[in-house]
Design a protein around this nucleic acid. Sequence first.
DNA 1: GTCTATATGAAGATAGAC
DNA 2: GTCTATCTTCATATAGAC
Lengths: 213, 213
Amino acid sequence: MNQTNNTDDKSLRVLKAASRVFLEHGFSAATTDMIQRAAGVSKATVYSRYPNKEALFAAVIENQCSHFTQQVQKIEVTPGNIRKVLLEIGHTYLSLLLTQEALSLYRVVIEVADRFPHLAHSFYTSGPGAMTKILAAHLEKAASAGEIDVQVIGLEPAAILFMGMLRGEGQLIALTHPGSQASQVQIDQWVNQSVTTFLRAYGSRVKTDATSG
Amino acid sequence: MNQTNNTDDKSLRVLKAASRVFLEHGFSAATTDMIQRAAGVSKATVYSRYPNKEALFAAVIENQCSHFTQQVQKIEVTPGNIRKVLLEIGHTYLSLLLTQEALSLYRVVIEVADRFPHLAHSFYTSGPGAMTKILAAHLEKAASAGEIDVQVIGLEPAAILFMGMLRGEGQLIALTHPGSQASQVQIDQWVNQSVTTFLRAYGSRVKTDATSG
DNA sequence: GTCTATATGAAGATAGAC
DNA sequence: GTCTATCTTCATATAGAC
């Protein structure tokens, strides 16, 4: 069962080690020495898999982005009224966003957006972009059901504003207070406030829980 | 009137050059060579003013933060109903936030938050923290005047949610799409949507625009 | 394919002339 | 105080042994 030495999983070990190092230190501050050591292989092995530091970094970020997209796409809500849907999506998304992995990914992508614009775009599309579309779809259903009315601004802008409230303070605090970890009750509070505000603005007055199936 | 050589303004030249270099490249990717060249002085001159790269960086960020605070504190609104106040504050603050300087400062502070936690805290307090307090004060006045009712969540949370909507998409797009510059109409649109949503949620039904000037 | 040892260049910091 | 020239360290990348 010794899987540290024999097979060709060294590529995987390199990628995983690189992920940890880049996400922790950023691109410029990370060194190939750290990666090599963390992977338990030699420098030559790293360079046999990836031509240089940039390519390895790109592989890491692309991998992380697709991982993040999967997490977002996986968000499924139990059918119910729009308040429950928003609470559930909000809680899941904000919790995901405030993990150390997601925060580190955000930090690193922002750091190098100038030098790797393609990765930055990819990050935007994989994360907030994907989430916006999912949320907009739910809002559309709720609008059809008469639970909300967002005609004043439109579905996508409404989704975007909701996500802005959701992320806002929590993400900013997490980024500027490294090491801190938001508690579940703090997260719930942000989610509740966002949902409350959104539904006060766009929820229908009519309660739709009695007869309509 | 040759002010490039004679006086003791070299300290200032170093600081300004360091600001430009650090804000453009970040901490790790910036080199003291770049700074020295940008300042038009020798490396020894730089090191006669600041003991090392870290100290110079700290001076730059602290300086930028206080500059940013001044900009925020300077935001004053012409008295009027709450909608006008929110539109004016929102427009000014978002425009400020989306300048290249503010975006770069954000980027760099986030990059090194782990290594310079004090600077990260300072940034949070100088920028979003200060703005939140200012906004909360305006909301309180509006609440006293009966224009809004935010008792459900409280003044500060209301201010925070508003700022979340305001920043949300614009800042994220700017950070992940370097070189792009949001247009004034785009900014106005985000501000309008945020204000509209906020007032639909917490504005009084009574219109207060008749008699007042 | 993998490792050890190393070439090469650059970055932070300083010594010594003026 | 300021500059030029340099020292030291370290990072990327490669060459050559196994």
